[in-house]
Computed example of a mutant assay.
Amino acid sequence: MEKSVRPAVLQAISSIRERYFEPITLADLASEVFVSRFHFSRMFADATGVTPGRFLAAVRLFEAKRLLLTTSLNVSDIVCSVGYSSVGTFTSRFSNAVGLTPTQYREPQVAELLVAISPNLQRLPPLRTLRAAGHNCASLQPGTGTLAMDLGLPEGSAPADTLVGLFADPVPQCGPVAFSGMAEMRSGELTIPGAPAGRWTAIAVAQHRPGSAGPRFSIGYSTVQVAPSGRSTARIELRAPAQTDAPIAITLASKQSPYTQRMLASQRPHLRSAA
């Protein structure tokens, strides 16, 4: 997959990952790869699915989450380490995106229920931990639809503990509106009950059993439409993580962010009229 991505995009992604703590601008990235800002933005979005600014923000928030969970640095030190100049601005943006304050993010359950995919950190919580937490622990409120996901795991890969979540944002920072998981899964169907009606980004993550020639982790994305009732269907083809994937670190213990609440409200007219 990465062989088909323009070298300019991969170079820009490398710069973002290496210099995310600096005040990088779109003009800076475009000039590094010798193309116009407009052409660079379009090229980058075609390759990654998001704008350069969204990708940079995802890298910064990922690193902030990593530091909150793995170090004892105070929040002001972390703010400086990830490229923000104001603690207040960082705290506001973090809380709005994640649904938890930076301090709340250090609660033990956040780390226990963390799903992380990046070049240097790949993690899926044990499915027994998810079951103990409750199937809808990350949901704002359960929906009435059922989504049957047809999952295609990479060819030659070993069986995998697999998790599929539905998100309001293609680069999620908070927990899914619905999710389901299965241990030792091969290609096949995984059902997500209690899915809210609407259009969502489905993200599948699989942690494969060691000892095969295939990837240790695989990931897949798909835009899905869930009907208000009955059974909806969709398919995701999983693959090894790529450099063009924006990093993901979400906890299934998180509350819904204001953004997800607005998405849910906009997709349920009866809720808007009752508000």
Rank of each mutant, 00 (worst) to 15 (best):
W200S: 01
H270Q: 13
V98M: 09
V59A: 04
D169A: 00
S76W: 08
S187D: 04
G214F: 13
R235A: 15
T191K: 10
G181P: 01
S187P: 04
I219G: 00
S41G: 01
G175I: 13
P142H: 10
S218E: 08
G134R: 07
F34Y: 11
L56R: 02
V5F: 08
R106H: 13
S76R: 14
T91F: 09
G143K: 09
S222A: 15
T146N: 05
A148P: 04
M263V: 13
G175N: 02
S229K: 11
A183S: 14
P119G: 04
F62G: 01
T89K: 05
V82L: 08
A197W: 14
V35E: 00
S180V: 08
T191L: 08
G220F: 12
A242M: 13
A58N: 07
I236L: 05
Q225D: 09
W200V: 07
Y259Q: 03
R199K: 10
G134W: 14
S14H: 14
S72I: 11
P258C: 03
G145R: 06
R186N: 08
P215F: 09
S257D: 05
E155G: 00
A160G: 07
P241M: 04
T101Y: 11
L147Q: 09
R235H: 12
L130A: 00
R19T: 02
P193G: 00
V79G: 00
A45K: 12
T144K: 10
C137M: 14
S273E: 15
Q225M: 07
T89R: 13
Q141W: 15
E18T: 14
N120Y: 15
R131W: 15
S257Y: 12
A30C: 09
N136E: 12
D161S: 05
Y84T: 00
A227K: 15
A246N: 11
V35S: 00
D77W: 10
A132S: 13
D161Y: 14
